[in-house]
Amino acid sequence: MRLEPKPAPSLAMSILYPVVAIVVTFIIAGVLVMLADANPFSVFRLVLKGAAGSQFAILETLTRATPLIFTGLAVAVAFRAKLWNIGAEAQLYMGAIITVVLGTGALPLPAIILVPLVMLAALIGGALLLAGPAWLKLRFGVDEVVTTLLLNFIVLLFVSMLLEGVLKDPMALGWPQSPKIIAEAQLPRVITGKRLHYGFVIAVALAIGLWFVMKKTVLGYEMRAVGHNAEAARFLGMPVNGVLMKTALLSGGIAALGGFSEVAGLKGSLTLDLSPGFGYTGIVVAMLAMLNPIGVVFSAIFVAGIFVGAAAMSRTAGVPSYIADVMVATSLLTMVTAIMLSRYRVKWK
C-alpha cells in the first residue's frame, strides 16, 4: 500500500468525506450494539430521541455542548497556529478555580460588575497557565504537547488539594466540594427553570467572534500563516514568536471561560468531576470541525448529542452508555482518515 498526493480535493469531495466518516462511525457502533444483543436501528433511534426528541432533550444537549464549544474553540485556535495545546482540561479547571475563589463572596459587588469581572479573571488565569508552556517552547524548544498534557494532571491534583483544604465547603458533610458561588456571580438561565444558561450564548458569540478574527483580522492572518509555514512567516517579517504567544494566551483564556461557564452557569461549585474530560473531548470537537470556529459549535452539539442521547438510550435499551465514548472516539479516527484520504490517493500494489 502506498500514498500518492492528489492535486487538490474538489469541494464535493471535501464535503463527501466527512459525511462518509460519520456513516462509517455509525456502522462500527452498530456492530457493537449488535454484540450487546440490541437492534442498532432502534438504539440509534433512541439515541436521537434522547438527544433531540423533546424540548428537554434539546436543552440538555445544548447545555452539555456548552463547555465543549469553549474547549473546542480553544483547541481549534491553538492548532490553527500549530501550537499543540493538549491542556484545555487544565485551563478549564483554572477558570473554575478562579470563579470559585472570586465568586463565593470575596467580592461583594452587583452581578452586572461581578460576572464580567470574574469572567475576565478566569480568562487571564487560563491565558497565563498556557503562557508558561508556550514560553518554554519559544525560549528552550520544550515540546508543548508534553508540558500541556502533564499540566492537566498537576492542575487536577491541585484542585484536589484545594478541595481537601482551603476551598473545602464545611457544610458539604466531608465531600470534596467548594462552597457555592453567590447569586451575583451566577450566569442567568436562558429559560427560567431550565438548565440551559447564558454560557451557551457566550460560547456561540465567541465562536462567531473567533471566526471573524481568523478571517478578517491581522492577528488571524498571522496565526494561519505561522500555522501553515512558520519558517516562511518568519522570513516574510512576521513576529512568529509573538503570534504564538498571543495564540497561547487566547487559547488558554478561551478554555478557562469553559470552566467559568460550568461553575457560574450550571454547577455553582467546584468539584473534582466538574469536567469529565471536556478538555480532551475538545480536541475531537475541533478536529471534527476541521478547526473552523463556526464548525466547532456544530461538532460540539453533535458530540454532546451522542453523549446525552446515549445516556437516555442506555436507561431504556440496556446498552451501556459507554457506546457514546466509542462513537466519539471512532468519529475522530474516521474523520482523520477521511481528511487524509481527501488529500492522498491510496494505491494497492
Binding site: A225, N229, A233, M238
Partner: peptide, 15 residues
Amino acid sequence: QGAIADMSVSENVIA
C-alpha cells in the same frame, strides 16, 4: 521561505 503553499495568492502577496 518564499511562499506559504497552503494560503491563497492574495494572502501570499501581502505577506
